[in-house]
């Protein structure tokens, strides 16, 4: 059973357009791995119709956190929910990042852009518990788009921030910052989540330097559990290439698996 129709919101924080909710769900908390996601029913009315997929941002013994940006009707309505409200959620869904003991003592990078930082906090904590030395690269358009920087700092993560407008940290894209820093060290693995163009660039220079990389992909989803075939990505696996469901086989895929979308002319 992957359904929890009684997940209570027990905490809520917000920064402008960004929200962090804690949801009480002992079952999902006990099963979740970094990179997995949940599907949230926004309304019990027919509009908006579909659940919204959100990655698991962190977990406690009995609760999980989600971190999201208001980007449409679904997330807008979700942002208006209050502490004490009950959410109907499915999860944990999908396959998460690969990490574990093999990264003990190794340098690893977790690079997130905007709301794409969401799954990387859970991942970074898990990697560190396995002994990995995690460097967080966190980029946004402006200072207000990197609201979780204090949270990473409090946890004593090695934090590298960038803003497109230079209002905080490195001025420019997080990809440029990461590329500069990779002149100084070579991580054993790069994990990333964010806009597709950002992840595509990271995939390119990770490949050049032979660094294994994993990416968490975003998509509109109809169901989240593999029945509608609505959320596909071009994936190469075992010598075959085809449309693979992000919700079921992903959302995390490795560099070698992903066939990135060509830029439109």
């Amino acid at each position: 059973m992957i359904k929890d129709s009684q997940a209570r919101i027990i905490d809520k924080k917000s920064w402008n357009n960004y929200y962090l909710f804690s949801l009480e769900s002992p079952r999902i908390a006990s099963q979740a791995h970094p990179g997995q996601f949940i599907m949230i029913r926004i309304s019990h009315h027919p509009h908006p119709l579909l659940r919204r997929p959100l990655s698991i941002h962190s977990k406690d013994e009995k609760s999980i956190d989600i971190f999201f940006q208001v980007s449409g009707l679904g997330t807008d309505l979700l942002s208006q929910k209050k502490v004490g409200d009950i959410l109907d959620i499915l999860g944990p869904l999908g396959k998460g990042f690969h990490g574990g003991a093999s990264l003990n003592g190794k340098d690893v990078v977790a690079a997130g852009g905007g709301r794409g930082i969401a799954p990387l906090y859970f991942l970074a904590k898990e990697l560190r518990s396995h002994g990995a030395l995690v460097k967080i690269f966190y980029g946004g358009k402006s200072l207000e788009d990197i609201p979780l920087k204090e949270k990473f700092k409090r946890e004593n993560f090695d934090l590298y921030c960038s803003t497109d407008d230079g209002s905080f940290g490195f001025k420019g894209f997080i990809t440029e910052y990461l590329k500069t820093e990779l002149e100084k060290f070579t991580p054993s693995r790069i994990f990333s989540c964010g806009p597709e163009e950002m992840m595509k660039k990271i995939a390119q220079f990770a490949a050049k330097k032979n660094i294994p990389a994993e990416f968490s992909l975003e998509s509109v989803m109809g169901c989240g559990f593999g029945v509608c075939w609505g959320c596909v990505k071009r994936i190469k696996k075992n010598g075959e290439e085809g449309w693979v469901k992000i919700c079921e086989e992903g959302p995390v895929f490795s560099s070698e698996e992903i066939v990135w979308t060509e830029e439109e002319k």
Binding site: S219, V220, M221, C228, W229, G230, C231, V232, G242, W243
Partner: peptide, 10 residues
């Protein structure tokens, strides 16, 4: 094989 994404719009 099915169609290229995006495949869904609400």
């Amino acid at each position: 094989p099915g169609n290229s994404p995006p495949r869904l719009v609400e």
